[in-house]
């Protein structure tokens, strides 16, 4: 069966600094992949290359067999325009460390914005779906609150609902709980666990090792721009093969 997401020899340079060095990765539909690793190892950069927020220096990302951001015409390869890319991006939701809710819109308006503007859904239908999503993330009573009136955990749950409203086939999470007070982490992880149980395909950069152990089907350890070790989380966490993995785990576990 074709994997949902396939990353082939992906490299990314910032000037002379090579941040990603020929990364290979596959993600099967319905799987949860957790990416862990020390700060600066290139986890965010990898995630941002998947939806072309960063343009890879070389290599390719395939979503459902189609290259992301690139298009063949005859035997020539062309870069996609921003507007072509935006069609592909609809399939990849992304949740950021800093939430990035639209501050001038209420929770409900944040969620219905893209379905109405991009998918051209009617307001009534978009609103109905948004209420269902708010209910799902446990914020049914916060529909008319502005982001600044919500706690960090609540903002992040609205951000998840906002992404889900576009009905993506894949969800990307970049350290979704790192900006939260410790007592608010649990409510966001609970929503993510529920999503995983419902069969959503997820790629999650995280420092929450217990989440990775319990929820991930696949754990990827990155260091220095390469995937040092990958496998089932139980194996990687309890029986790491590499010294770099061992020393990282010794620090975070």
């Amino acid at each position: 069966m074709m994997p949902l997401l396939n990353v082939e020899r992906l490299s990314k340079d910032f000037g002379t600094h090579q941040v990603l060095k020929s990364i290979d990765l596959t993600v099967a539909a319905g799987d949860v992949t957790c990416i862990v690793g020390p700060s600066g190892s290139g986890k965010s950069t990898l995630l941002r290359c998947l939806n072309y927020l960063e343009v890879p220096t070389s290599g390719a990302v395939y979503l459902e067999g189609e290259p992301v951001g690139l298009r063949f015409k005859g035997d020539k390869l062309y870069r996609m325009s921003f507007n072509e890319l935006s069609v592909q991006r609809q399939k990849m939701g992304m949740v950021f460390q800093g939430f990035h809710l639209f501050p001038h819109k209420t929770a409900l308006e944040n969620i219905i914005e893209a379905p109405m503007i991009v998918k051209r859904k009617g307001r009534a239908q978009a609103t109905e779906e948004a209420h269902a999503l708010l209910d799902k993330v446990g914020l049914a009573d916060r529909a008319d609150y502005y982001p600044r009136q919500l706690s960090g955990g609540q903002q992040q749950r609205v951000a998840i609902a906002r992404s889900l409203a576009m009905q993506p086939t894949l969800m990307l999470f970049d350290e979704p709980t790192s900006a939260l007070d410790p007592e608010l982490v649990g409510e966001v992880l609970a929503v993510m666990r529920q999503l995983a149980e419902e069969g959503m395909t997820m790629v999650v950069v995280t420092h929450e090792m217990s989440f990775a152990r319990d929820v991930a089907d696949h754990l990827v350890f990155m260091d220095g721009g390469i995937i040092v070790e990958a496998g089932h989380p139980k194996d990687v966490l309890s029986n790491p093969q590499h010294s770099r993995t061992r020393s990282f785990l010794a620090r975070v576990l």
Partner: peptide, 19 residues
């Protein structure tokens, strides 16, 4: 982050600027 969030939702540049 605002423009990036809009981009990941599939909004075009013109939609992001306007909305």
């Amino acid at each position: 982050g605002q423009t990036e969030a809009a981009a990941t939702l599939g909004m075009t540049q013109a939609q992001t600027l306007r909305r």
